[in-house]
Design a protein around this nucleic acid. Sequence first.
DNA 1: CTCCAGGGAGCTA
DNA 2: TAGCTCCATGGA
Length: 290
Amino acid sequence: MLISALNGGVLVEGSDIDLRKTFDCGQCFRFERAGEDAFRGVAFGRVLQIRVGGDGSFFVSDMSVSEFSARYTAFFDLESDYAGMRKRLASAGLLPEALKNGDGIHILRQDFWETLCSFIIAQNNNIPRIRKIIGAFCRLLGDEIDDGVYAFPTAEKTAAAGSAALAPVRAGYRAAYIAEAAEKAASGALSEAALRAAGLEEATKALRALNGVGPKTAACVALFSLGYGDAFPVDVWMRRALRNRCAEGFSPRVFGSLAGLAQQYLFYNERYFSSQRRSAAPGSDPAPKA
DNA sequence: CTCCAGGGAGCTA
DNA sequence: TAGCTCCATGGA
């Protein structure tokens, strides 16, 4: 993989990441298509305008190589050996069709507070509406970092606003959960560094101490932001996949530290390639019609 | 109208 | 531990 400066932006060549799948496998909610082979989104307080080229290359506008290397190499998880991980998952017996269909998915390393807040919002909700609520939340309390583009609100500002102020976001009963999580994150009672150091089991326990955070949300935060590759979020799609396509007595433990990646493959396969799926995703959905 | 959505809290037995 | 019901909201 090669990262170089080009026309005021950053050109990444020789990566195995498939951005379309990566942005659309349910792990992040703030990236969208911006025309053919282009995406726009916000991560770590920064607008990312991306054009996808051939041969695993993509171009990020208006960014220096040093900024990209400092933050976004990790965000896109560009340095992990996905080919090797896929081999290990295949040997461990992961459903071949899920492995095949999910080729190119990377697990993003997202901001801790944003991930926690986003997956609190996600509970008992569907993906289009999760995106809508998060968008409204960002417009309400986030800094405008470009014309009509808003950063994810900080925990401090969210805590200061309080749950009643979140009403226009239409998050329903989740508003109180958001406000409480914001207070704990802002006050330092909930420390990202401590959670990273604690190990998955203890981190999960600490996250679940928050009102509105159960096993699934805690697993998502652990996997998508804290770097616990062995976390395995189980949601309705995963139950469906486990019921329909996995052997009796299946346990994600067989995938060890790659359980989270296995989960993403199974999720993506079940949601977009299952003939038993209930409905296709909405029109903006960049996923293939299989 | 009912059912569902990348669930979780609170209660019961 | 397992199995309920309810929780705001909006789309199908």
